[in-house]
Design a protein around this nucleic acid. Structure first.
Lengths: 232, 232
DNA sequence: CGGCCGCTGTCACAATAGTGTCATCAAAGA
DNA sequence: TCTTTGATGACACTATTGTGACAGCGGCCG
C-alpha cells in the first residue's frame, strides 16, 4: 500500500492543473478528468482512495456523480470531497446528505484542501495518512512498522503486520476469509482459505503474549473481527 | 446503545445554549462545558461519541484539547469537529493537521452543523447513524455481526443470526415455516419444517435471557413474527 | 558457497460449536 | 374432552475452527 489514489473531477483546467501539481508533490497518485461520465468510468476501472469532485461539471452534475458512486458496491465507501461555488448552504447540506464526506467552498487554498484530504484519509484509511493507529491498548506506527500493546513492543511478521493493520483500519468489522485474502495478501496466486486461520492464530499469539485478553473475535461461519469487548 | 453522546466545548453561553437545544431535539445525549481542562476530564470520565470543540476557549486552547484527546488511548479515535472564528486559514489547517476531523467557521447554521455531525458519525459509528437494524430494544449491527438487547450483547449462532435478521428486516410480518426456510436457509437439501420451531426456540432463549418479554409472536397455524406486544 | 534462520502456506488431527430430528409434553381450539 | 399445533430437551452428527508440525524459500552471515 504505497501511494493513495486520488481522482480529481474538475472542469476548470487552470484550477485542475494547479491542484494536480500540488497533489503530485504530496505523493498522491492522481487521475484527472473534467467529465462526470468519465469520472464514473475511471472510478470503476480502478477504485480510488478519495474523490475530489466539483459540483458544477460537464455532463452529469457532481451531485449525480456522487450519488452514483455511492450506489455502486465497489465505490460506495470511497470518501468524496465536493468543491462548491461560494454560497448556498442548502447545496452543501444536500451534498453532505447525498453522501459527500466534506466540501470546500471556492475559492480555497490548495494547502487547505490538502489538509482536508489528509484528514479524511486519516479517518477512512489511516495508514494512508501516515498515522499511528490505535485500538484499545494497541497502537501501530505504520511508518515505523512497529506495534505496541500496553506500551510493550510486539514482534510481528510482515503478514501478521498487514493483517493487523487491516483490522485496525476497520475496527469492529467482521471480515470473511475471502475478504481478508483480498485485502491483506497480494493475490498473485491462489491461496488456501484456511491459511487465514493460521495467520490469525499467529497474530493472536503475538498479541496476547502474557495473558492478555484476546482482541480478535472469531465469528463462526463469517470470519474475524478486531474487537475489544469480545464478551458481549 | 441508544443515544449518541456528544461533548460540546464552547464558552459563548448564548451559542452553547442554542446548540444544546438543537442537539437535544435531535436526540443526542449532550454534555456541555466552557472549559478546556474540564472538557478533558469529562471526556475521560465517559468517552463521548463525538466532540464539538471551540477553537478559542477558556483555559487551555482548543487546539491543545484536541491534541490531548488524540494522545489518550481511550479518546484517540473520537471524532472532533472544531468551531473556528471566520478567517485564519492557517488555523483551520493546523486544526485539521492536529487531528480534528472537520471544522465549521462561525457563523454557521445549527442545521449545517447537525448535518456534519451526522455525516461524521455515519462514517465512524454506523450504529449511531442508523445503519443498524432496530426493533424495540433490539439492535443488530450487521457489519460487526453483533446483536444487542437493551444494550447488552446477545450471543447468537449463525442460523439464529440470519433468522433474526430476516425478522428485523420485516418487523411485524408473519412468516410461515416454508417462507422462513426459503429466506433463511441455504436450500441445498430439504429440511424438515419443524426445524424452524427449534431455531425459533433457540432464538427466543437467547433473546429473552434474563426475564425479558418475548419478542417473537407465534401465530397458530400460520407461522412466526417479530412483534413487541405479543398479545393484544 | 553452505548453512542457519525467520516466514509462509498446507496438512492432518483435535477440539468445539452449531444443526437437524425425534419423541414427548403442553397449550389452544372446537 | 378430543384434536391439532407448538414448545422442549436430548442426542447423534456435521461443520467450522484451533493447533502443532513440516517442508519450501529466500536472505544473511560467516
Amino acid at each position: 500500500m504505497s501511494k493513495a489514489r486520488l481522482l480529481l473531477v474538475e472542469d476548470d483546467k487552470v484550477l485542475a492543473d494547479l491542484l494536480v501539481w500540488h497533489f503530485e508533490r504530496d505523493e498522491y497518485d492522481v487521475r484527472w478528468t473534467s467529465d462526470g461520465e468519465e469520472a464514473l468510468m475511471l472510478a470503476l476501472e480502478q477504485v480510488p482512495d478519495i474523490v475530489i469532485l466539483d459540483w458544477m461539471i460537464e455532463g452529469i452534475s457532481g451531485l449525480e456523480v456522487c450519488r452514483r458512486l455511492r450506489r455502486g458496491a465497489a465505490t460506495a465507501n470511497v470518501p468524496i470531497i465536493m468543491l462548491t461555488a461560494r454560497g448556498e448552504e442548502s447545496d452543501r447540506v444536500r451534498g453532505l446528505e447525498t453522501g459527500a464526506d466534506d466540501y470546500m467552498t471556492k475559492p480555497f487554498s490548495p494547502r487547505e484542501l490538502i489538509a482536508r484530504i489528509a484528514a479524511v484519509l486519516r479517518r477512512v484509511r489511516p495508514a494512508l495518512a501516515g498515522e499511528v493507529l490505535h485500538y484499545a491498548d494497541l497502537e501501530m506506527d505504520v511508518v515505523a512498522h512497529k506495534v505496541r500493546r500496553d506500551g510493550k513492543g510486539v514482534p510481528l511478521g510482515p503478514t501478521e503486520f498487514r493483517l493487523l493493520r487491516h483490522f485496525l483500519e476497520h475496527p469492529g468489522r467482521v471480515f470473511s476469509r475471502e475478504r481478508l485474502l483480498d485485502a491483506v495478501w497480494a493475490h498473485d496466486h491462489e491461496i488456501e482459505l484456511r491459511t487465514v486461520d493460521v495467520h490469525v492464530r499467529r497474530l493472536r499469539k503475538a498479541l496476547n503474549e502474557g495473558d492478555r485478553a484476546d482482541l480478535i473475535r472469531t465469528v463462526r461461519s463469517a470470519g474475524y473481527a478486531l474487537d475489544a469487548d469480545g464478551d458481549f
